[in-house]
């Protein structure tokens, strides 16, 4: 199980990386942490002709507080996220989520930008970013743009990113500081991809009830799913009203769930509902 041949580039400037990807972009791939891309290449499920290693781009490794929020460079690793006081200050959700992402040795290499760009539907980070109202900063020789996380994920390994675009950063707005968040996932074994999970945010601190919750499921479809009916049912519900929370968490019939190797669509829906309720009850 060896990766096929490729050529290897290690740019030291973002402009250089963008120049390399500008030509024949569909045959090239950016290498960030490599924790998903390299196994896919070892299985020969992915065979880019050129790998562009982002390890030399220092700008992508930074976590910076800017005027309207927090800019997390694309190649910041999960371990670095977990160690950052700045990140914790912006949202407690990272501290809840990170221990569930694979294992220490993977978190030491795996990056936030890589997770976003890959868009594995079972990954936690896309759902977290949607819940936080984050956006993804993309750059190409054609220019730079910000795409809201809510609009970024299109399907299984499909995103708004064009082949020639590089994820520069993930931007978390200042508004996320005042969100309360909930997180729950079900994985057969610690660190496995979840068979169902949810990340929830809401600016509900002042009133004691849910105001404008965002409920984002993962691991149950080909992309992170906003559970809009759940969100609507929750508006105005007191956070300690377990009966209404239970009923809201069952409002999933507007969504289409995908089965996986071990679980049917029905099971996925049922487990998603449990995750939603448990996450809500813990908020």
């Amino acid at each position: 199980m060896k990766a096929p041949e490729f050529t290897y580039e290690r740019p030291t400037e973002i402009s250089e990386a963008l120049a390399i990807i500008a030509q024949d972009a569909h045959e090239k791939a950016f290498l960030a942490g490599g924790q998903s891309l390299l196994p896919m290449m070892n299985f020969r499920l992915a065979a880019p002709k050129t790998l562009i290693d982002l390890g030399g781009l220092k700008d992508l490794k930074e976590i910076v507080a800017v005027e309207d929020g927090l800019r997390i460079g694309a190649t910041v690793t999960y371990s670095e996220l977990g160690a950052s006081a700045l990140v914790s200050e912006f949202s407690q959700v990272f501290d809840s989520v990170l221990p569930h992402i694979a294992h220490s040795a993977i978190r030491n290499r795996g990056t936030i930008g890589g997770s976003v760009a890959l868009a594995d539907p079972a990954a936690e980070m896309p759902a977290v970013l949607i819940a936080l109202g984050a956006s993804v900063e993309l750059a190409s020789q054609r220019g730079t743009r910000f795409v809201p996380a809510d609009e970024f994920f299109h399907g299984l390994y499909l995103t708004e990113r064009s082949d020639d675009e590089l994820v520069l950063s993930v931007f978390i707005p200042n508004s996320s500081r005042s969100l309360s968040t909930g997180f729950y996932e079900l994985a057969r074994r610690h660190g496995d991809y979840a068979i169902a999970g949810v990340c929830i945010s809401d600016d509900s601190r002042p009133s004691g009830s849910f105001n404008a919750p965002k409920v984002v499921l993962f691991g149950v479809s080909d992309r992170p799913l906003r559970a809009k009916s759940v969100e609507e049912s929750l508006v105005g519900v007191a956070r300690n009203d377990t009966r209404k929370i239970r009923s809201a968490s069952e409002a999933l019939s507007d969504l289409v769930f995908d089965s996986d190797l071990h679980n049917s669509q029905d099971t996925k829906q049922r487990l998603a509902s449990v995750c939603v309720r448990r996450a809500l009850e813990a908020m």
């Binding site: 299985f43 057969r188 074994r189 610690h190 660190g191 496995d192 991809y193 190797l261």
Partner: peptide, 16 residues
């Protein structure tokens, strides 16, 4: 055979 990786064929790990 549908599960031919260690991610899909589940063996017991320390945590559980």
């Amino acid at each position: 055979l549908l599960n031919t990786s260690l991610a899909d064929y589940l063996v017991p790990m320390a945590s559980e």
